[in-house]
């Protein structure tokens, strides 16, 4: 464990908690893409099946349980409890165009052709593109609530910190996982446009609005 991975995990945890509290407190999921949240629930489910087979540390196990629990709770709030506030008309990204290619790629490019490893690879590739429905929805509505931008900021920051963690681990431990690194680079690049808007607008107290 290094400081970059720890702050990355805490940034990820912050994002998940911010979103869950935003929906719970405001009793509304307006502006939130339910499709992205379903994809994230799929990412955690397929990646953390090793909860049943391997014990690494209390930290590792507890964080995985928290991530899975919060992501399913978020999906539940969006599609069940606060379903009336779900903005389905703007959450129209065709997720099959993400899941099918990612599924195919995880069979073609992986470290080991075993069920757990293919599911892990699938979750890595899926996580790289899981935010697209959310970014697409913001581009369609032309704006995002400020709390939603903070959620996206911490979510994007977490994988950027992981990239530094991988540089650190390669240099000090000789560890590197090409699949995770390439997917992590793609994932972080997808946030660059948002990061620019976040820094130039939200941090200056303005609302995030895209030229519709």
């Amino acid at each position: 464990m290094n400081i970059f991975r720890l702050t990355g995990d805490l940034s990820h945890l912050a994002a998940i908690i911010i979103l869950l509290l935003k929906i719970w407190k405001s009793r509304s999921c307006a502006g939130i893409s339910g499709k992205s949240q379903i994809l994230f629930a799929m990412v955690f489910t397929t990646r953390y099946l090793d909860l049943l087979t391997a014990y690494i540390s209390l930290y590792n196990t507890s964080m995985k349980i928290i991530y899975i629990g919060c992501s399913y709770a978020t999906v539940y709030l969006i599609y069940a409890k606060f379903k009336a506030t779900y903005d389905g008309n703007h959450d129209t990204f065709r997720v099959e165009f993400l899941v099918v290619p990612v599924g195919g790629l995880s069979f073609l490019v992986n470290h080991d052709f075993s069920p757990l490893e293919i599911l892990w690879t699938f979750s890595i590739y899926l996580e790289a593109v899981a935010i697209l429905p959310q970014l697409f929805m913001i581009s369609k509505t032309g704006e995002a609530e400020t709390i939603t931008t903070h959620y996206l900021f911490f979510l994007g920051l977490y994988r950027a910190l992981y990239l530094i963690n991988w540089v650190w681990r390669f240099y000090f431990e000789g560890f590197f996982d090409m699949i995770a690194i390439v997917a992590g680079v793609v994932q972080t690049i997808l946030y660059c446009d948002f990061f620019y808007l976040y820094v130039t607008k939200v941090l200056k107290g303005k609302k995030l609005s895209l030229p519709a």
């Binding site: 391997a54 690494i56 964080m63 992986n110 470290h111 080991d112 490893e117």
Partner: peptide, 10 residues
């Protein structure tokens, strides 16, 4: 397939 990396990351 190269050897499987230890999955100690989240």
């Amino acid at each position: 397939e190269d050897e499987v990396q230890a999955k100690d990351e989240l």
